[in-house]
Every structure is written in C-alpha cells, then in structure tokens.
C-alpha cells in the first residue's frame, strides 16, 4: 500500500516535472512560431515541428542534470513520502473525528438509557428491600407478642 502510493507519487511528480518540461518546450515553440506566423497564419500546425526536438533536448538536459545529482531521486521520494504520510494521517484524524462526533452525539442517549435502567432497577430493589424489612420486623414483633401471650395464658391456666 505504502509502496504503491510512493510509486504513484513518484510517477505523478515525475510527470509533473515532465509536463513542465514540455510546457516550456511548447512555450519556446510558440515564440519561434510567432516569427513564422507573420508569413502564414494558417500554417500554425506546421510550425511546432522543431519543438519536439527542442523538448527532447531540454528533457535530455534535464534528465542528465537530475542524474548528475545523486541525492535528487532520494529527495523526491522523501518529499513524496512525507506528503503522503501527512495526507494519510489527516484522513485517519478526520475519520476519527467524525466517529468521535457521532459518538458524542449518541453518547447522550446511551448515558440516558443506562441511567434510566439503573435508576429504575435501584428504585425497585430499594422498595422491595424496605417492604421486606418492614414485613420481617412486623413478623418478629408479632411472633414475640404471640409467644408471650401464649406463655402467660399457660401460666394462668397452671395457676388456676
């Protein structure tokens, strides 16, 4: 992935350089053409004939100059690498930011839902707990009273 990107960028930057080269070539051709244009304006297509040669020469010079510099290729690859890395990072950051925004937008609802669930459950448990506590307390007192009453009854019976 990374490799193919780099190659793509190299090819791209190379073609930009080449396009620039051909551009200047055609520019010079236009300059040379304007001279002959005064003679026959219609003959324009015929005029650029010298340009390929000029462009070829220029390209040759250019390539030679590039080849002459041993660090140039490495520098181009490095620049391309850096720009693509920045772009890739930016894409990742964007995606994450979009996801984070969506999460933040959703978060309210998720928090609300979970809060509702826990609050309802807790209220239910507290109500149950209190009810159960009250029942147990009442049972205990009643049982004690009942036992006491039965005991007194028994003792009274024993007396009489």
């Amino acid at each position: 992935m990374k490799k193919s990107l780099v190659t793509l960028l190299v090819v791209l930057s190379g073609s930009i350089v080449l396009a620039d080269g051909s551009g200047s070539g055609s520019g010079s051709a236009a300059g040379s053409g304007s001279g002959s244009a005064t003679v026959t304006p219609v003959a324009e297509p015929a005029v650029p004939t010298p340009t390929p040669a000029a462009a070829k020469d220029l390209r040759k010079t250019c390539t030679a100059a590039m080849n002459a510099d041993p660090t140039f290729a490495a520098a181009i690859v490095k620049t391309a690498d850096e720009t693509s890395a920045i772009k890739r990072d930016q894409d990742i950051i964007d995606a994450h930011q979009r996801a984070a925004a969506k999460v933040a937008e959703n978060e309210r609802h998720v928090i609300l839902a979970y809060a509702a669930m826990w609050i309802l459950s807790i209220i239910f448990v507290i109500v149950l707990w209190r009810k159960q506590g009250g029942l147990n307390a009442e049972i205990a007192t009643l049982r004690r009273d009942l036992e006491a009453a039965l005991a007194t009854e028994k003792s009274e019976k024993a007396k009489s």
């Binding site: 159960q132 029942l135 147990n136 009643l142 049982r143 009942l146 009453a149 009854e153």
Partner: peptide
C-alpha cells in the same frame, strides 16, 4: 427475593389471625 417477600407477607397474615385469636391484637 420477591417470592420470599410474598411468603413473608402470607406468614404475617397467618400470624395476625393467630394473634387475633390469642387476643394480642
């Protein structure tokens, strides 16, 4: 838990009846 609570309530009802019979309540 709720079953235990319901059973406790039933026990309480029975105790109340017993207590009424015994004159505690």
């Amino acid at each position: 838990f709720r079953v235990q609570s319901i059973r406790a309530a039933r026990e309480l009802r029975e105790l109340r009846e017993a207590a009424l019979d015994a004159g505690v309540l």
